[in-house]
Structures are given as structure tokens and as C-alpha cells.
Design a protein around this nucleic acid. Structure first.
Lengths: 356, 356
DNA sequence: CTGAAAGCGCTTACAG
DNA sequence: CTGAAAGCGCTTACAG
């Protein structure tokens, strides 16, 4: 619900104009730095503005000029460091452009997303950056966003949406991670975590399969372990890896949260990532570099992606009719200790460790 | 800079009114759910609104009604999980109240804070939640915020500011953590990390000193190790603990980032927190529970604090003249394995481990 | 139950 | 160089 404003009437242009004995137009020109106003008048007006503590009402100006000075960002969950970094990047670039950020989160719920989008769009942002909740349909977007707010989809695509898109090269990232394990001699490599519903998980699995195929290895379904992409779920599922026969010697994880969880699960079994089992992640969240052991992962630099997304959406707001931009950002493999372990010699397959 | 709006003219109330052959007032009444409008008219108008994809211009309404439907939040750094969680909590509560969140960040710079605040205030938020950058003065606040936006200070106080405040009981939290180490038999307890400039650090040191005093122990200045409150700095400084003679057997850390960094620094020296050295943190960020070993820490529940801050600032916006509220939230100690290590027997003081 | 009119705080041609 | 006037999209007494 809208809130009442504080008690005392806000100072307006008219107050300043009256106090200086000039018109509101003149004060407005002073504010916009127009050269058409006399130096003496300007000084007088500026002093009065400071004296009265006038604060510009940008909403009113936007209404009159038909402009906007905000951009909306909608993410699934701010407490996910990946999105927090991304939001920090968006904020940086928007602040540089003199824009303000409207933030909403969906908690991965399509209904909440609908409500959040509707509420944000009413505030007239110049553009909207959305990391869509899982299961978002084209209709959900059309309903909520309408056709008047430029939309940039981040991270996940929505079938049929012909708007701007900024994503990560999931296929290539997972391919790089898998190829690195293969280069170290691993042949039994699991794909760990995520679930098939998500397009990014499908793409990462595709890159994984491609690397295996390139090396003449098969992607065995039994080495595909599904779990929710959280650290706790991943830790709890670690045992599943060793229930397979033969057990894998390495795992390409859906993302860093899963990889860090898996490393905890391994530790609980007396195994150490990088020594006894090789692990890779995806995202390169800040924690990855300082975990024990440091996590080999695919770097997406979410903060830089945030800046990029902000730049793209501001550009779109200036040129609404340009054809949609689709940017799939290249990734880099950050090789660290967690993937250092060599596979055991083929003659001595590892025995499953005892389940605690 | 403000952005031009998308190409096509936005649909307005007037468009709907004209299409339905009614006045704008009637359409407005339909939108606000007024009972004064006939059922037939209402249905017709609602259909037309959907058909044309009309989106309400809340900015215009706010201007006319002199209301606001946003709240601004300014934090130091979104990529700090503590603030990310806090922001998520603020967002939750605001969404429930039908308000939108304007987000800015300062990167702990007073100048950037001034610019960010000025920009946000121009958008006319109903209130402003600020975790002030270090070194913020009362004048900085007065300059930037003026007297017309209700202000809630979070986490750090500003001398002389008589606005709402929501904080954490830093003194009691550090006292609890220290007392727990003393109860386990530790007598040589360091205070690790943070720097004296910050009020929260001073308060936590006070709690630490109080616990020591309560147990008849002295707070030795040589067991006070300053470092920037980041994981990397904390890891790098770990050696300083063992350069003291006698070396401490436990450390109360300024916050979780520092504690996790210290645990890494210990690991680099072949020491394990909870076995060879006791460590406590402050904040209970999500990582604390899943680190190895899990970190004993002071739980502040930042997400709940975020909801609370949002509630407080909305209440303030409704009653601008009520006396300032000062809420210092109680804390709880989450006891986990990192503080489990007993002190070594007094007869055999630990030798300093080799510096790598 | 519905409409005409004024006004929120600003900007911007247009005269002077 | 400065002012009077219209208008952005909405709301809200006030008449009818």
C-alpha cells in the first residue's frame, strides 16, 4: 500500500521561485544548467535552493518529460551469491548512468514473479532485467511486462521470447571442465546435481556429453546424479556416487553450490576432493577460490555480467526498435586444486568407502 | 541520465475512458475498486483495460496523491552475504506491503554514499534504510537525506542522529562468544580482525573485554590483532597469532568472514580449528553452518532483521512525528565445532608452528 | 451512479 | 535573459 508522505509539505520549485522573485521556469533552467540564465540570477537561485533544502522531484520531471530514471532487476534469490554479485554489477553500471535500481525477487515462483513484475512495471522503469523463474512461459512475460517495457532476459531463456538475452555459454563451460578431467586421465566422470527441468542444466549436461564423446567416452546414465542445486542437498547425495559400480573417479557439478556441498559430503566420508576424487563447479562464486581445497570451476564473472546487462538494457531503452540482441558470454575455466587428483590406476578400481 | 521511453505512446486512463465512452474519473474509480461505479460499467471498463494492455502509472498517482510506494535501501556491499540476506528480508516485507525497493550501494565510501542518497531521495521513497559507510557524519546525513525522508539507520549508529535505529547487540554477542570459550577452559583468548574505527568493532571488543573481566582475566593488548574484515586479509594475518608469547589458544573473531579466513590460515599452518585452536565468528552467515568445521558464531538472522527494518520504516512513514525508535536486537550464540577444542594443559604451552 | 474541473511538481516551446 | 501557459497521467472533492 502506498504510504503517506512525511508531515511537512515538501519544498517545491515554486517555493524557490517565489523566494527569489523569479518564475518557476527560471528555477527549472537553473537546475538543468541551462546557459540561458543570468549569472546573478543563477547564484541567487542556487543559494536559495541550498538554504531551503530543496529536493528535486524526479518523478514529476519524468512524468512531464516522458522519461524514466530507473531500471528494474528481478532475480530468484538475492541470498544466492551469484545473483548478489550480479545485482552489485547492475547497480554499479546504473549508478554510473545516473539511474536508480528497482529490485524484486521471485523465490523461483512463477506466481510471485507475476506479482513482482506487475508492481515494478507500474513504476515505469526504462527497462527490466529478469532472470526468469523456472517454468516461466512466454505468456507469463507478455501478461506481466506488456509491450512497453524493454525486457532483457538473463541466464535462462524463455521459449519464443524475442527480446534481448544475456547468457553464459553453458555448453562450452561444462565441456571445458569435463575435458580438463579427461586430460588428467579420468574416464569415469559423473555429472552431479541440478535437475533436468532447467535449461542451464540441460545445456551443461550437453557440454559434458560432448566432451566425453570427443574423447570417445560414453555418458553413462548411471553417472548422472540429480539433486536440487543447494549445498545441503548436494552434501546429502554424495553417497549416491559410490553406490554405482564402477564408481566414478570425478564429478562435473552443476554449479559451485553443488560442488562445495559434494566436497563436504566427500569429507564426511573421509575423502578429500583433489586428492581422492576430482570435482569441478560452475559460476566461480567468491567462495570457490577460498574453499579447502580451492574449487576448479567455470568463471562467469557475475559482477561483470551485471554491468553488461545494465548497459544492454539502457541501450535498448534508447533504441527500442533495434533487433533483439542475443549475447552468450564466453567462459573461462579456473583450474584449481579440487580437480587435481589423478584417476586411480585401472588395475585397482577404488572400493566404495563405508557409508557413515 | 534519464532514458527516453519506448517508442509507442503508453496507454493511459484517457484511452480507456474514450474507448468505453466514460470519463477518466470513472475509469479511475474502477481501478481503485470503488463501490460507486455500476456493475455494467465496471465490467466494460475492466475488459477494455485488459484488451488494451493498460498499465497503471503509479508515479503519476503518487504525484497527485502525495504518496509514495517505494522504500530505499542503501548498503555497503551487496556481495557481502550478510547484506544480501538483509536486503532479501527487506524485499520480502516490502513486497508484502505492496512497496517496491530502491537499492543502492556505497562500497563503504562516504562520497559515493552522498551521491547515492541524493539520487535515491529524488525518487521520493516513503523511507530510507541506511547501513552507513564507515566515517559517516551527522552532516553527511543531513545534507543528503534532508528532513523529509524518514531515515532508519541499520547496524551502525551515527553520532547525534536522532532517527530510528535497528542494531544488533554487539556487546552481548561478543560477551557470549567469549564466555563460552572461557567456560571451556581457555584463558588466552585473542580478539581477531576488524578495525577500531568501526563502532560495531568497538562494541564487540567491549563485550569480549567484559567477559574476560567477569572471569577475572585481563584483555591483553598483544592478543588484539587488527585486520580488514575480509576473508583474505584474515587468512593472511593468521601468523600474527603465533608471533605472540605466550600464544593464544582461541580467538573471538570480529565476524564470520574473518573467522572463516582465520580457519583457512590455520589450515595452511597444519592446524585445524576446533581441534588445535578454538574460533568463533559473528553474524551466522549461511556458510558458517556448512564450513569445515562448522563455525561457532553469534546469530543475528539478517533476513529477519531486514523484515524488521522494513516494518519499522513503513511504520515511521505513517507516523512521522513519533519519537525515534531504537531497537537493539538480542542475539543468540550458535555453538558448533569450531570452538570445541579444549585449551592445552597449562604445563605444556603450545610451541609456535613453523611459518610457511 | 457519472462527469467537469482543478491540481500534484515539473518542463518546454513560445512570446516578450 | 525571463515569464505565462499548457500539459505529463493521475485523483478527488463537487455538482448533477
Amino acid at each position: 500500500m502506498p504510504q503517506r508522505s512525511p508531515s511537512r509539505r515538501r519544498i517545491t520549485l515554486a517555493d524557490i521561485a517565489q523566494a527569489c522573485g523569479v518564475s518557476r521556469a527560471t528555477v527549472s533552467l537553473v537546475l538543468s544548467g541551462s546557459p540561458m540564465v543570468g549569472a546573478a540570477t543563477r547564484t541567487r537561485v542556487e543559494a536559495e535552493i541550498r538554504r531551503q533544502g530543496y529536493v528535486y522531484n524526479r518523478g514529476a520531471a519524468n512524468l512531464r518529460r516522458n522519461t524514466s530514471s530507473s531500471v528494474a532487476l528481478v532475480v530468484n534469490d538475492l541470498s544466492n551469491p551469484f545473483f548478489a554479485e550480479f545485482a552489485a554489477g547492475v547497480d554499479e553500471a546504473l549508478a554510473d548512468a545516473g539511474c536508480v535500481m528497482l529490485l524484486g525477487s521471485t523465490g523461483e515462483s512463477v506466481e510471485r514473479q507475476r506479482a513482482v513484475l506487475a508492481s515494478l512495471v507500474e513504476h515505469g522503469p526504462a527497462g527490466l532485467i529478469l532472470s526468469p523463474a523456472e517454468g516461466t512461459s512466454l505468456d507469463d512475460l507478455r501478461q506481466a511486462v506488456g509491450l512497453h517495457t524493454p525486457l532483457l532476459l538473463f541466464n535462462r531463456d524463455v521459449d519464443g521470447a524475442d527480446c534481448d538475452f544475456l547468457g553464459t555459454d553453458n555448453v562450452e563451460g561444462a565441456r571445458l571442465a569435463t575435458a580438463q578431467l579427461i586430460a588428467r586421465g579420468h574416464t569415469r566422470i559423473a555429472f552431479y546435481g541440478g535437475h533436468a527441468g532447467s535449461s542451464s542444466c540441460r545445456q551443461r549436461r550437453e557440454g559434458y556429453a560432448r566432451a566425453l564423446a570427443d574423447a570417445g567416452l560414453a555418458a553413462e546414465p548411471r553417472w548422472r546424479i540429480e539433486c536440487a542445486p543447494t549445498r545441503l542437498q548436494a552434501a546429502a547425495q554424495a553417497g549416491a556416487l559410490f553406490a554405482r559400480d564402477p564408481a566414478p573417479t570425478a564429478a562435473v557439478c552443476y554449479n559451485d553450490a553443488v560442488a562445495l556441498g559434494l566436497m563436504l559430503g566427500l569429507a564426511a566420508r573421509g575423502l578429500r576432493a583433489g586428492d581422492d576424487f576430482a570435482v569441478t563447479g560452475f559460476d566461480d562464486i567468491p567462495e570457490a577460490a577460498v574453499s579447502v581445497p580451492p574449487l576448479t570451476t567455470v568463471a562467469t564473472d557475475p559482477r561483470a555480467r551485471g554491468r553488461q546487462a545494465a548497459t544492454m538494457v539502457l541501450a535498448r531503452a534508447r533504441v527500442p526498435d533495434a533487433p533483439p540482441a542475443r549475447v552468450v558470454h564466453p567462459v573461462q575455466l579456473a583450474v584449481r586444486a579440487s580437480s587435481a587428483s589423478p584417476p586411480p590406476p585401472p588395475s585397482a578400481p577404488p572400493t566404495s568407502p563405508p557409508t557413515p
